[in-house]
Amino acid sequence: MTDSGRQLAGIIGLYDDPDSLIAAAEKVRDAGYEKWDCHTPYPVHGLDAAMGLKPSPLAFLCLGAGGVGAGAAMLMQWWMSAVDYPVRIGGKPFFSWPAFVPIAFELFVLFASLATMGGMLVLCKLGTWASPLHDSGVMAEVTTTRHGVVLNADDPKFDEESARALLEEAGCDDIRLLYENVEEEA
């Protein structure tokens, strides 16, 4: 979709209060859009449900990485104490698992927290250094006073007219089009 040579990236509806945003998000969700997002200056309670977001996969990443950490710790201690350099301590077996539990616990926590941190950054798409939101200056507004719903142009259901109609129906009076690389045009 082009408009005077510019690539349409999406459409944003800006709201002044979180309740209108939630109402709009419910409408967009029910209309069946998939590639869309909300931007707010602060966490808005109930927005997850209004957007129909699925639970984040981060929890499973956290548990899985923790398990890997604990397993690695056990394996490491088994190899060190029972295989590579066995030393009899206190008459106990070389592989004395109770003694290895604290380190397994620590590595569980370490792996889980690092994976959660890294996973969070990846899932937040850190590394996307440019976006139409920034280029158009809308980001400055939705991080200070306003609440925005963005419908991406690459959503299979997207077309400009119906998206605009949907946002208007949700009580929006500030609808703007977002373009890729606005700055270059300007």
Partner: peptide, 8 residues
């Protein structure tokens, strides 16, 4: 458990 087991 672990402290008692370890100290023996």
């Amino acid at each position: 458990f672990m402290l008692i087991w370890y100290a023996n």
